[in-house]
Design a protein around this nucleic acid. Structure first.
Lengths: 215, 215
DNA sequence: CCCACGACTGAACACCTGTTTAGGCTTTTG
DNA sequence: CAAAAGCCTAAACAGGTGTTCAGTCGTGGG
C-alpha cells in the first residue's frame, strides 16, 4: 500500500479527472471515460466512491471547498459579486473548477441551490459596501435585490455560454469571459445608471397596494 | 389506410406525445417511453421520423410554428417581452409547449438561439413602444439593451425553475409562474425606477474611453 | 378480385451504461 | 516468513439505448 504513488493518491487523481471531464463534456460523462482519463479501471472508481453518485458527491465537496478557500484568499476585489467565477477562471488550473460550477448551474438541484445561496450572501455584502460608500442606492429589501442581481448575472451568463450540451473548451473560457463582459458592459452600465422607467408611477402604485395589505 | 383514425393522424399523435414527454421529463426522454405514451411501437416512430433526431426536429418545427401563430394572435398585451411564455402557459393546453421551450432553453443549441433571437426582436418592438409613449428612457443601443433585458428575464427564470433535470409538473407551471412574477416584482420595479448607480461616473468614463477609440 | 402500398408491430441487433464479482498484486503487519 | 489488508484490474452482468428488419394487417386503385 503505497501512500503517494506518482504525485497524487489515485483517489484524488480520479476526482480531478472527473471534475475535468464533467466540466468539458457535461455532467452526464460516463464513469468509463473518467476512468480512462485517470488511467485506472472503472471498477476502481466504484471501489473508492461506491457509485457514480458518490463520485459526483466527492466532486461537489471538493469544488465547494476550493471555492470557500479561494473566497477567503482573494477577497476585496472591487466589482460585481458573481465576478468570482470570472476571476477564478483566469487563475492557472482553476478553469476546470469554474467549468464544473457552470455545468452544475445548468443542471440545477440541491448543490446548485447552495452555490447560488453563497453567491447571494456575497452579493449582499458587496452591495452593502457600495451603499455605505455612497456609490449605490440603498434598497427597500437588500436581500431580494442581491438575489435578483445574482440571478440576472448568472442566468444571462448561462444563456450566453457557448456549447449548451456539447464540449466546452476550458482553455478558451477566460477569453470568452472577457469578451462577454466587454459585450454586456455598455448596456448594463446604462441600465443601472439611467432609470429604465422614466417615472415612479408603477413603483408607487405597487408600494401603495402592498402597504394597504400590510398596515 | 385510414386518413383520420381516432381524432388525429398517428404521426401527429406521436409528435404531441413527444412534446409532452420532453417537457415533463426532459429532452433525454427515450423513444420507447414516447411510443408507449402515444400507444404505438418504437418502430413506428422511426418509420415516420427516420430517427430520434428527426422527431426532435419535428417537435422544434411544430413548437416554432405554434409560437409564431400565437404571437400574431395575442399581440398587444402590455408588459415585458418574454412575458409571452408566461401568458401562453396559462392558456389551456399550451403548457406542454411552454415546458418544451423551457427545456430547450436549458439545453441550448441552434434552435434555442433562434428562439431567443425572436424574443429579442419582440423586445425591441415593445421597448420602442415604451420609449415613444414616454414611459421608458431611450437607449444608446436599443438592440443591445433589448438583448440584455431578455437574457436577464429568461436567465433568471431558468435559474429559478423548479426541477433542474427531474420531472416538471405542467399543471403547476402557471401557478409557479404567478408566484415567481410576484416574488421578483418589487426588487425589479425598484431596480428599474431608481438607478442602482448613484452617479454617472462609471458610465461617463466608459463613454469617454469608447469615444476615444472610435472618433 | 387482387395486387400493391402504406401503416404498423415485435423481435432482434449492436452498443453503451452503472455496477458486481473474482481474483492477482503489493505492501504492511503480527 | 506468513498472513492479512489494502489497491487494483479484467470480465461479466443486467438493463437501457437508438435503430433495423422481416413480416402482418388493412385499405385504395387497377
Amino acid at each position: 500500500m503505497r501512500s503517494v504513488p506518482d504525485d497524487q493518491t489515485a483517489k484524488a487523481r480520479i476526482r480531478d479527472a472527473a471534475i475535468l471531464r464533467f466540466a468539458q463534456d457535461g455532467l452526464e460523462s460516463s464513469v468509463r471515460s473518467i476512468a480512462a482519463d485517470a488511467g485506472v479501471s472503472a471498477g476502481l472508481i466504484m471501489h473508492h466512491f461506491g457509485s457514480r453518485a458518490g463520485l459526483r458527491r466527492a466532486c461537489d465537496d471538493h469544488v465547494q471547498a476550493a471555492i470557500r478557500e479561494s473566497k477567503s484568499e482573494l477577497m476585496v476585489p472591487d466589482g460585481a459579486p458573481s465576478a468570482l467565477l470570472v476571476q477564478l477562471a483566469q487563475l492557472e488550473g482553476y478553469a476546470p473548477l469554474v467549468g464544473y460550477v457552470l455545468r452544475c448551474l445548468q443542471e440545477g438541484g440541491e448543490f446548485t441551490a447552495q452555490l447560488i445561496e453563497g453567491m447571494v450572501t456575497d452579493a449582499v455584502a458587496y452591495l452593502e459596501e457600495g451603499v455605505e460608500a455612497g456609490t449605490l442606492s440603498p434598497s427597500r429589501d437588500e436581500a431580494a435585490r442581491a438575489r435578483l442581481l445574482t440571478d440576472f448575472a448568472l442566468g444571462s451568463l448561462l444563456l450566453n455560454l457557448p456549447a449548451g450540451r456539447t464540449s466546452l473548451d476550458l482553455d478558451e473560457l477566460p477569453g470568452w469571459f472577457a469578451d462577454y463582459a466587454e459585450r454586456i458592459l455598455p448596456p448594463t452600465l446604462e441600465l443601472f445608471t439611467e432609470p429604465l422607467l422614466k417615472d415612479s408611477s408603477l413603483l408607487d402604485a405597487y408600494l401603495a397596494s402592498s402597504e394597504r395589505n400590510t398596515p
